[in-house]
Amino acid sequence: MTRPARLVLDRAPSPIGELLIVTDEAGVLRAVDFHDYEHRLQRLLRLHYGALPLETGAAPGEIKAAFARYFGGALDALSALTWDTGGTSFQRSVWRALCEIRPGETLTYSQLARRVERPAAIRAVGAANGANPLSLVAPCHRVIGMGGALTGYGGGLERKRWLLTHEGAL
């Protein structure tokens, strides 16, 4: 992870609530969350970047356009975004593995643990999934419980259901 000099917060509409988009001074995506979870976003940013202030500003147009294309039906639009974030090396390995789950696909936590070559670390994978600062981009909504159960999602189960339906997984 490269430590940013600045963090910039922008907002964008979506069919499931306003998005909070955090980029750095180079326009690299650092975090994405929903407006009703801004407190969690602030907490994660402090955890990852310390006391670095969050400034209001504009995200690069290509980032906002990618989100608009995703919600418009181009389900792979977010996969091309460049991102960097804090977190432990284990967490970042889980978040990279999330990016390998294609739209319309789902994995269980145990399958994800095997993908990161830590098959016994199912709970740790779940915790890393829950600490994911890149909602939608590192698509943690594609991780489900055993038997297909829709288990926790930081944006709420209603959004998880909507996203999986949007992507054709439900």
Rank of each mutant, 00 (worst) to 15 (best):
Q42H: 12
Y109F: 15
L52G: 10
G50N: 01
A149C: 08
A113T: 01
K64H: 12
C99P: 01
A113K: 06
D24A: 07
R142K: 05
R159L: 02
E158I: 09
G50I: 03
L47T: 03
V28Y: 02
R159D: 07
R114P: 03
L163Q: 06
L7H: 03
L98C: 10
G17P: 04
R115D: 03
Y37G: 01
S14I: 04
T56V: 12
L112N: 05
G27L: 03
L20I: 08
E117I: 04
L170C: 03
P13S: 13
A5V: 14
G50Q: 03
H141I: 13
G152F: 14
M146H: 11
P103S: 08
A77F: 06
L44F: 07
D10M: 05
R118D: 01
T108D: 13
L157K: 14
A5H: 09
L52V: 06
H48G: 01
P139E: 11
R3D: 06
H166A: 01
V8A: 03
R69Y: 07
H141E: 08
Y153R: 07
A80T: 11
A131L: 14
A66E: 11
I144L: 13
A97D: 12
A77R: 04
G148M: 12
T82R: 15
W95C: 04
I63Y: 02
G154R: 14
